[in-house]
Structures are given as C-alpha cells and as structure tokens.
Design a protein around this nucleic acid. Sequence first.
DNA 1: CAGTATCGTGCAACCGGTTGCCAGTCAACT
DNA 2: AGTTGACTGGCAACCGGTTGCACGATACTG
Lengths: 350, 350
Amino acid sequence: MTGSGRRRATISQVAEEANVARSTVSRAFTQPERLSDETVKHVLEVANRLGYTPNPVAQALSTGQSKNIALIVPDVANPFFPPLIQAAQRKAEEYDYCVFLGDSDEQPERENQLVERFTHQVAGLILVSSRLSEAQVREHARRRPLVLVNQDFPEMLRVLINSGAGVAQAVEHLAELGHRHIVYLSGPATSWANRQRRTALRQAAKHHGIEVSAVAAHKPTHEAGRGSAHQILATGATAAFAFDDLLAQGLLAGLADAGISVPRQFSVIGCDDVLGATTYPPLTTVSNRCVEVAEIAVSLLMDALRTRAASDVRHVLDTHLVIRGTTAAPNPALHRRPAGREGQVVQRSN
Amino acid sequence: MTGSGRRRATISQVAEEANVARSTVSRAFTQPERLSDETVKHVLEVANRLGYTPNPVAQALSTGQSKNIALIVPDVANPFFPPLIQAAQRKAEEYDYCVFLGDSDEQPERENQLVERFTHQVAGLILVSSRLSEAQVREHARRRPLVLVNQDFPEMLRVLINSGAGVAQAVEHLAELGHRHIVYLSGPATSWANRQRRTALRQAAKHHGIEVSAVAAHKPTHEAGRGSAHQILATGATAAFAFDDLLAQGLLAGLADAGISVPRQFSVIGCDDVLGATTYPPLTTVSNRCVEVAEIAVSLLMDALRTRAASDVRHVLDTHLVIRGTTAAPNPALHRRPAGREGQVVQRSN
DNA sequence: CAGTATCGTGCAACCGGTTGCCAGTCAACT
DNA sequence: AGTTGACTGGCAACCGGTTGCACGATACTG
C-alpha cells in the first residue's frame, strides 16, 4: 500500500506535507547528520507514508552524477560474457547502481556509438574486450571514469585475465604428453587476449622446443571452429590450442566430421572454460575468472567514482590449466593419414 | 575534432553563440518545422561546431520520458537469454533507445526491486519469464508501459513462445518410435513456460496413449539435469522430455555417468534449441524463436510508447521439433536393468 | 553579559532541457 | 486601409532534485 497509486510523489509534496522546505527533505535523505534527529524522523515518516523515492533522473541532472554505469561487450551471445555480465550487474546492484548493457557486435564504430550514447547518462563505463583504438579509449576516458577489461593501455584502470599462465601450462602439458608440433587457432586480430595468448603460446612452445603453426578463425564461434578443422589438420600438428572454448568446441565437431577421434588421434585445448564439462569429451581448457573480473572491474569503477582521481591500476588475474578429456599422447601411426577424402584440397585462408 | 574537449556544450552555450533563445535551439532539434529553415540551419551549424548533443538526462526530467528501456531476465547466464538480450538491445538501438539490464536470479523479490529501481529512469519495461505475481505485474504496468515475454496475463502486452506445437511434435515423434512411457523433467514451478510445456506434453501423451511421469528439477541448470538422472531412470520411462536444453544436456551427462547410452538405451529431448548441434550426441529439441521474440517485444513496447494507449496484445510464436541425434526406438531388453550400482537407492525428491 | 561558535533550517539559484503563451512581422483578404 | 491569420522566435515557468549562503536560535567563551 504505497498509497498514491498514479503518479509518484515528489519532493515538494513531501515537503508540504511535512511542513518543511524542500531542501530539508533532500537533506533528510542525503545528509541526515545535518538535521536534527527529530526532523529526519518526521520527514522520513511522511516520505514513507507518501511512498516517496528520490527521482534518480532529477538527482542526476542536479548533481551531474547518475547512479548508472555502462557495460559494453563485443558479443552478448558469446558464452564468455553472460557470466561476466551477470556478475557485473549484481555487483553494481550492491552499490545501488543500474547497468546499461551494450553489444558492439565486435565493431569499433558501434562500440563508439554506444559509448557516445551512454556517456551522458552514466557515471562511468566498463569496456570489455574493447575493439577501440587506444586514442579513442583515451578520449572517452577523459569524459568519464572508464575501466578496461582485457585490454591493456598504460595509465588507465584495467583488469586483465592473464591467460599466459594457463597457456604455458597447456603447452607444458602437451609437451609432456609428447606433442612436438601444435597449432594455434586464433581469435579476433584486434583482441588483446588473442595477442596475449598467441605470444604466450609461442614463448612456451619455444621453451619446450615445440613447433607452432597458426590458423586464423574469422570469428570466435562454434561454426568458425568447425570450419577450420581441415586447415588445422593440414598443418600436420598433433594438437590444437584454440583461442577460446567455442572455437575448440567447434573444432571438436569439425574433427568428428572428419572422422578424427579426440583425444586418441588429435588433442584439443580450449581457453576460458566457459563450457565447463559440458562438451564431449569434456574439454581440457584454461580456467577463466570472469566473475571475479567483473566484480573487480565494478569495484574499481566505484572507487574511481568516489575518489575522483584517475589512477593507474593494472589488476591481473592468473589462470591455470584444467585438464579434462580432450588431451592425450599423440598417435604417430594414425597421424600419418589425416583422414578425410584424399582428393579434397585443404583451402588456405585468405 | 569536436573542439571543447573537457565539458560537454549545453543548450545555453549554443544559444548564446548563435544569438538566439534557448528555446530556439531546443526547437531546432525537436521541432525544426516551427522555425525558418535559415534559423535551423544556423543553429545546427553552431551546435555542430560546439559539439553539442542534447543531454538525455535533462530531456528526461523535462519531458518525463527517457529514451531508455529496461530488460529484466531471470538468469543472464542461462543460454536461452543472451541471444534474446542481444536481439532486444540491437532492436532498441534502432529506435535510439538504451537498455538497462536486470538479472533477477529467478527471485521475485529481486525482480521487484529491479523494476522499482528502473522504473524512474525508463520509458517502459520488458519482463522476460517474469516470476512475479499477476497483481505485482499489473501494479508495475500501471506506472509504465510493460511487455511480458513468456508470461500470459490477460489484457496486457505479451509475446509468447508456444512451445506447445513443438512439444506435441516431440511426443508424436516418440510415439512413432515406439515409446509408451515418458518422463517430464520440469523447470521452475512459477514459470509460465513450464506450465505450458507440461500441459502440452500431458495432452499430447494422452492423445497417443502414452504414460507420463514427472521429475522436478530445482533450477533449470546443467547440474540439476545431471543430478536428476537417477530419478529419471527410476520412473521406468524410456524417454525424457526436459523443460529446456540445459536440463537435457545435464541429463545427458547424468545418463552417461550412469552408463546409459543415448539414444540406444534412452531417448532425450530438450526444448529451446539453445545449444544448437553442440552437444554429443546432438540434441533433439524444440526450436526457439528468442531473437524474433525480443524484436517483437521491443517493437510492441515502442508502439505502446507512441500511442499512449495500453492495449491488449497476445503475440504467439509457434515452434517445431528439431530432430537430431538423441532420440531412437526404445530398447526393451536393455531397459529392464537401469544400470548403476544395484545397491544405490534412488532418492525421491522432497 | 556581550561576543562568538555551532546547529538547524529555509531561501533561492542552479542543473539542462521543454513548452505554453505571447508579441511582432508580413502577406492575404474584405 | 483595416482586419485577419500564418509564421517566427522569445519569455518564463516548469520538471525534481541539490547546495551555497544566510539567518535565527542556542550554547559556549572570556
């Protein structure tokens, strides 16, 4: 029974009903210590009776600070992001903030548009796996506090998942199993994570004296992974490390299509552990920390909003290898003949 | 080069620079036909030079209408929702609206809180698979235009996925394969979709003279599905229809754990087709229409915002069965002994 | 007991737009 | 020539809050 029903009560109505000035009502909510306990109690009681809640839009206009934040991701439907989005949303809720969600569809222009559109209405933004140029990001950061997730520009607020650690473990794991030639199924070229993983892979491989080939997937999707199977096999490698689990899962399907048994004939490792143990066989992968990442990003942003100072934070979360069922020792006998119809020419990517 | 850099230009600055009143600047943007072409051109040019864009917060306060909408879902991480969220967001963008995302975690109280929090700042809301009571929803709908997705309350705006058609086809499919006893692995009790599917299943089963058991999953998750395997087997059914794909996928895993081979020993059908062909074996399931649903919901909401009349719309989208690899004829010989350790007592759900 | 902090509250301006109303201009119509 | 009406654009109030400043009252100082 909040009473009124129709229109929401305003501060003026409360003020009138309580026989005080509007400023007093305002202060009863925002700085009660400046009023006598008596007054606060009275105002709050009246406000409650009228079902009054401060209008956040008016507050935002008046203070120039809204209790909203924006979260922009490249692809909501990519399973890496939903848990992150969820965690961010919940964390923001703890601070009593609402979150705008934007999906850039991996396109820098759209990302830019979204930022532009949001920037008026939010206190700060979180850009996840931003595809924007450094200059653009800096431009936006000048207007509003901005936290980067999985993008590493100096002197900004950023939280990074260091897949490097997990990737190194993955390579070591493969080396121990006896693999001498592996292939990296890469992700979006503009992705920081992609560069990071590729670099870590190369480095670790070098360390273990393992040969590395590379195959480019156009998009990090199941389909792209599936479609890359022939190219992967054509490299002559005995194991693949995919940029992410989706690609890995797709590759699994592609390999199955080609009659290749995993892990008996070919090993596959994913990254980000977004599928858990839901693939068949359950995917060996590199752990992710997306829930923590989201929480840290939100906290960082909240801190930045409080202390209006733009600081330089680089929060790195390590990862590790999660060994499940898609890796095993290479089988030289089987590998000689990559299966599939001999006549089929493996296409080179453009 | 939008110039200013620091603070964003305001309408007053533009007015001053252009030697016109603030109202003229305002009208140049909102009702240019009320001004001479000359003036409009001049104002727009000055505005552009100053990098001015109307402040949506001020607009919202002044007009009482923001260009934001809220989208509330029960669980962002449930793969059914991300494509829907994505589609809704993109569609809203077409109309130049921003979307707030809320995750109710399947809890009515949280959903209520979210609505409460959003309602000030948005022009309208979309509630997906709302867990709220009819009274609560109506209460909210009185304040703001509101569209329901997969919840069916009379005389409101709602868009529904009629899984019924697909469910009927699923039962028919099982009947044709020779199944005589199936089990429904149910979803959230408060879910409209759950009731709908269960009812459709019962009806179709009756029609085909098939016996139906039921097992309740606590939450529509992979884990819940996996954990229900023993209960499912204990029913003596030869096939299961799961409330959704996640449960089905989990059930697949649980059956595998129990040493049951799908579809040779047991058939499984999911619902919503959120996993595509990514399970092993690829899941037979009922198609979903979540992208269309989202687009229709947004359009409906936009219409409602334009014509301020609260109308009664019931938009239903039909579905169909997608046959993949988890259904086959029952195998009586194998079914006699449900596998698993004999000593293990199947637990009854509470 | 005058002089000065301190406290509690009100006044009024401000945030950045929108919009009803009014006035001036000019062409068209009796 | 006087009236009417369309067309432009300005004035000022308003949306619902916040906040710097002032002012009266009370408490504290010497």
